[in-house]
Amino acid sequence: MIDFFIGLFLASFIVALFSGRLYKLIFWYAFNALTLGIITLLVGAQIDDIALIISGSITLILKAGIIPFILKRSAKRFHLKREITSNIPIQYSILLVPSIIIFTLYLAEPMSSMIGVNSQYIAISISSFFLALILMIEHKNIAPKIIAFLMMENALFLLGTTATYGMPMFIELGIFIDVMIAIVIINLLFKEEAIR
């Protein structure tokens, strides 16, 4: 079951990379966060860790619900450009994505023997991190870059969950608060630009 959702997690990154519309990108971010929340809940249930179950629930509410809602609302309110064009031609992206995944699988192999968890999970977390970086680089507009930053955060959260079975609860809560502060600041910046 976890394998299935990790597969979906990675797939949402790949689809996001090829999205040409802002709302679709927000949708894929929400979907990505949804799979992340479910993975965290499943891992938490598997190892019987209440902290992970709480983290997973917060992820579902905050990252899959509230943040995409705020992002879409801001996009409408501040009339953000809905067409998002990529700087990297699609044929190069098609070559780049599998190369990153293969490279990270190779990179994660020795690491998994040290950590003692499934190497594919770590590989997918790291490849998702790199894919989020590409998403950030390939767009000129600011909105896709922000979504890429949030997806990068998701990739790191997955790495924390799979490589260490979750970080201490208060740290994860702190990270959630920071993400919320980031959203508030992003909104403020958009508002300032709209006022001007």
Binding site: F149, M152, G160, T164, L189
Partner: peptide, 19 residues
């Protein structure tokens, strides 16, 4: 915001590996 986010994400990435 963007480059700072990349930098801070790298720091968290490293912290997870150290942890």
């Amino acid at each position: 915001m963007i480059v700072g986010a990349i930098a801070i994400s790298l720091i968290l990435f490293g912290i997870i590996l150290i942890y």
